[in-house]
Structures are given as C-alpha cells and as structure tokens.
Design a protein around this nucleic acid. Sequence first.
DNA 1: CAACATTAAATTGTTGACACTTTGAACGAG
DNA 2: CTCGTTCAAAGTGTCAACAATTTAATGTTG
Lengths: 233, 233
Amino acid sequence: MTSSAAHDVSFLRLTSLPMLLEREIESMILDGRLSEGGRINENQLAATFGVSRGPVREALRSLEALGLVELLPNRGVFIRSLDIAQVVEMYGVRAALFGYAAQLLATRAEPDVIARLRALLDEMGEAAQAHDFDRYYPLNFAFHDFIVERAGNGVLTAQYRGLVKQLRLYRAGNLMTGNTLELSNEEHARIVAAIEGRDAASAYQTSFDHVERGKERLLARSASAGRAEEQSA
Amino acid sequence: MTSSAAHDVSFLRLTSLPMLLEREIESMILDGRLSEGGRINENQLAATFGVSRGPVREALRSLEALGLVELLPNRGVFIRSLDIAQVVEMYGVRAALFGYAAQLLATRAEPDVIARLRALLDEMGEAAQAHDFDRYYPLNFAFHDFIVERAGNGVLTAQYRGLVKQLRLYRAGNLMTGNTLELSNEEHARIVAAIEGRDAASAYQTSFDHVERGKERLLARSASAGRAEEQSA
DNA sequence: CAACATTAAATTGTTGACACTTTGAACGAG
DNA sequence: CTCGTTCAAAGTGTCAACAATTTAATGTTG
C-alpha cells in the first residue's frame, strides 16, 4: 500500500451505492421531482438508476430514519406528508435549537462572524426594501445556517439541518408578504446586536422569538387558508 | 393520501422483519451484548437470527441514521464510539431540548403533572439521602423523560429520546458520587417549583442549567481520568 | 529479520429469482 | 345497481448465489 504514517488518510472509498442513492432520492423528494401521489415505487426507482432493488431499499431505510419517507410494511414507501400540527411542533424545536445556537455564538462572537452577519443583514435589508422575496429567501437561509454552523456544536448543526430538511416537505409556500420581510429583518438585527454585545441570554431569547414568530405567521396563514377551503367546500 | 376518518383501523402489519431486527440489534448494542471490538459481522448476525443478510443490512442502515452505528464502505459496520468532545456537544443540545420541554410544560402545569413530579422528587430525595444510586438512577431518568413527554411536543420527545439513546453509547459510568445525588435533586426541586409557578423563563433556565451541570461533572471526571491515564502511561 | 510482494480466506456489495401480500378489476348474486 | 367474491396483476419481502474488496497469512528478498 502507499503512504500512511502521519495522518492515516483513508483513501478508502468514502461513499457507496446506497449512500449515493440516498442523496439522489433525497433531492428528488425535496425538489418535488418524485411526488406522484407520494408513493415511491422500488422497481421503477431501481430501473431509473440502473441498479437492483437491494441498494434502493437500503437508501430508503436511511431516508425513513431521517424523517423524509414513511415505510408501511407490505404497502410501500411514501413521501412523508406533514400536517400543520407536526410543522408547528418542528418550528418549536427549531426555535429552541436556533436559540441555543445564538446563545453559544454570543459567548464567542469573533469579529469575522459579526462582520459576516452584518453583511447579510445589509443585503437582506436591501432585498426587503425592494420586496424581492427571491433574493431575500436564500440570504435568510444563509443567515440562520451561518449562526448555527458557527455556534461550533456539530451535533446541534446536524440536528438543526435535519429538522430544516424535514420542514421542506411542507409545501405551503414560504411566501412572506410585503413588509413582513422588513419586520423579519428587524428581528435579525436584534439577534446580531445581542450576539455582538455578547449577551447570551438576549441572543437566545431574540432568536427563539424570531423562529416562534415565523411559526405564528405560518399558523395565521394556515388558519385563513383553512377557512377558505371550508368555504369552497 | 393519508388517512383520517375516525379510526382508520390499520390491522395492517405494523412491523416488519427489518424493523424487528433493528430493535433487537439496538438493544444488543445498548446492553453491551455486541461489542467485540465494535465490529458487527453481517453473516454472523444474520445466522444468529436465522435470516438472510438483506433484512439485517436494512436494519443496520436505520441504526446508522439513528447514530448508533457507523458504516464504512467495504469495511463493515461498527458500533459508534463517542469521544468526550461529542458527548459534551450532545449534552449541550440535550440541555437546550430539555430546557425547552420544561418551558413548554410550565405553560400548562396541570395538577396531575405537578403531583407526579413531586412524587418523583420525594422518592429521589429518599434515594439520595441513602446514597442509593441504583434506586436514584431510574427515578432520575423517569423525571426527565416525564417532563419531556408531558411537554406535549412529539417531535421534541423523539429528538430528545434519540439523543439520550446515543448518549448511552458512552460508557464511562454515570456514577454520581456521594452527595452529588442530593445536589442534583435540589436542582430538580427548583425545576418543579418553576413549572408549578408557571414561570416559563425560569423553568427553561433551571432545566438548562441542570443538564449543563451534569455536563460539567462529566467533564471534571473525564479530566481527572485523563490525568490518571497519563500517569499510568 | 524487517519490509515487501503474493496469495488465500473472510467479508461486504449487488444481483436476479422466487414467495408472499396487497391492490383493483372483472364477475356474479341478491 | 350495490355489495361481496374471485382472480389476475403489480409490488413488496426474503433469499441464496455470485462479484468485488478488504484482511490475513504466507512466502520472498534485500
């Protein structure tokens, strides 16, 4: 064998067919490329990838544990569909995790972190003023993810991202209307201020509240949508 | 579409061979019945259960996603081994989740919940005074799990329990020494008081701190153990 | 005898076949 | 026409065999 010594590098295969399939199927689900009624057909899936069903089934088991699909014995695999109650619960947990991330970050708050947060804040501000949701959305995502990532807790990052991933299953439009963008970014500003001020308690609270308010907005929209549905029925 | 109706009976098979194997292998891992160097042999496992390797592999994929085993392509499956740094991260996330649970519970705080918490508190008090760790431990577990369960957020409960399950991989003795039990139970008392007083903020803080203090104790023990190891080397 | 190449054994990876269950369409009785 | 039964088609569940890779054991050379 070739080099090793210092850092036993592991040129070893880093991926495998089931892992590859898992990633691919996951993106098919999240991109909505697969939701023909929510059912996933093993044969068909295996055929499109040109592999046998074994590795596909293994990938689906992983996706089940990640909360992206549901496995009903003898019935098949279904893309998990979230009802509003579950989404609300997820938002709560996400609020707690995000709050904790901000709290941790506040105890460090290195200059480059602050700078990056301020930059994102400014960009979001511009997008918000322009009511440009398509520009705001990825910045908003980056802002949250950056705080979590830089909190420096890998377990936290994994849990948070897993939750956000599951949340993507809930397609009801994340559309914020009009000045909601500006309100949202004001909350961001408070978060950054708390982190910059090394105020851990405030960082937690403002961040927690920020996600909770997102939940409220979602609930409000869901309620009115529910009423509309009832009327049309 | 997913069910609704009053009770969509589902006499449908609720379990499957891979799910069964998953549960069984999981308990084998957590009970330490399987750790011959951390390696898991598919053939051997399949033979002991009298099944083929297919279902076993599927079960192992699930366990990987749950964070109980590691899958190295072409190398095999290994029982996940946690280093102290990972455990510390997990404690942090657990603190955040547990704090959130207490916070939620404080906003409800129904009489039967308070009664149950007080009962557990008393029992733990007795066990603590008697320095009876074997009696204290399951009560302590029940106390925490009860708070999480009754917080009424299923996603939170699942995440919390998943984390606690992973934490069991870290065998370094959860032995609390001497009066640590009494100190721990004083913290429990503060938590119950906050919940009973419907003080959500205090419930969060006391609960978060309680788990964090557990982390500190762990770290302290780990540090001294590290020194001992160094000396003996 | 230490380090390297070679080869055999063990283990994982993938497949195609077959058994079992569910689904739904055709059929027949009331 | 509705309800229940029967039967074929489709899909999932499991297996055993084979391919590919890793691991170890053996032999070889400087």
